[in-house]
């Protein structure tokens, strides 16, 4: 489904290279986790994949179902089924959640020759989706993320994911700022959305999320590269020994540059 090959990216118009050769392959039905220290480039990777204009791909490619998407705009990528749950969801005063989601849903439907939903049909459709993350329907008529608590913002991202039903989702630290109850709700929601036709890449610092959403693969990102991949046990190892130990081990093995 997604194949990232030797991806290099820098900040547009500046000489700051952030991604320095990322390789990642994600198949339908898989759940991946990316862990890594602050500033290693995890969010940047998710933004580059979603088409943020702030970054420029200087080398490598991003293939989505075989098509190179590096030149596509963010909305065109969303039409193909890409979704990013933001680490810091943006507040947009004056536009309600419902307005955004209806516009988004119908734009994506149109791009894929699927039927659009009229306001009444859409109302039924999203009301149903509210259950996925146990949100009240007053949420729909509030301005996007405006005045939401940290936890509500994260929930809202997953709610949007449920509504737009993407093929591939990057969840950037969706677990940060959630208390244990909210974490359970959000994880349940993600598990309900996950199926064998879609795929999820979670970015997180904590193993606790992975206890609720079981990843098939865990990757470690450091200094702009995925330096090690493994199964769930890699997350446990990181939790126990930290990134420094991993880095030393890799240097000893001559794997790191």
């Amino acid at each position: 489904m997604l194949e990232i090959k030797n991806l290099h990216a820098k900040v547009e118009g500046e000489d700051i290279e952030i991604l320095k050769g990322v390789n990642l392959k994600v198949n339908a039905g898989e759940i991946h986790a990316i862990m890594g220290p602050n500033g290693s480039g995890k969010s940047t990777l998710s933004k580059v994949v979603s088409g943020h204009p702030e970054y420029e791909v200087t080398e490598g490619e991003i293939l989505f179902n075989g098509e190179d998407i590096t030149e596509l705009d963010a909305d065109e990528r969303a039409h193909l089924g890409l979704f990013l749950a933001f680490q810091y969801p943006v507040e947009v005063p004056g536009i309600t959640n419902k307005t955004l989601l209806r516009e988004a849903y119908n734009t994506i439907a149109r791009a894929n020759d699927r039927e659009e939903l009229d306001p009444i049909e859409f109302e039924d459709y999203i009301t149903e989706k509210l259950d996925v993350i146990e949100m009240k329907d007053e949420f729909l008529s509030r301005s996007i993320n405006t005045g939401f608590s940290g936890g509500e913002k994260k929930k809202n991202e997953i709610f949007q994911m449920a509504v737009l039903n993407p093929v591939l989702s990057f969840l950037d630290e969706t677990d940060s700022g959630l208390d244990i109850d909210a974490l359970k709700v959000v994880s349940d929601g993600v598990n309900k959305i996950a199926n064998d036709k879609n795929a999820i890449v979670m970015i997180t610092h904590y193993q606790r999320l992975l206890n609720y959403i079981k990843p098939d693969y865990v990757h470690v990102m450091m200094a702009g590269k995925l330096i090690k991949s493994g199964g769930f046990e890699l997350a446990e190892e990181l939790e126990a020994n930290g990134y420094d130990a991993l880095e030393k081990e890799l240097v000893l093995n001559g794997e790191a540059q």
Binding site: V90, V92, I95, L100
Partner: peptide
């Protein structure tokens, strides 16, 4: 970018933001 990442065109995103303003 937030709106665009949800599938709205850049033009529509700008339009909505001005509208909201």
């Amino acid at each position: 970018f937030y709106l665009q990442s949800r599938g709205l065109t850049e033009q529509k995103s700008r339009e909505l933001l001005v509208y909201a303003f």
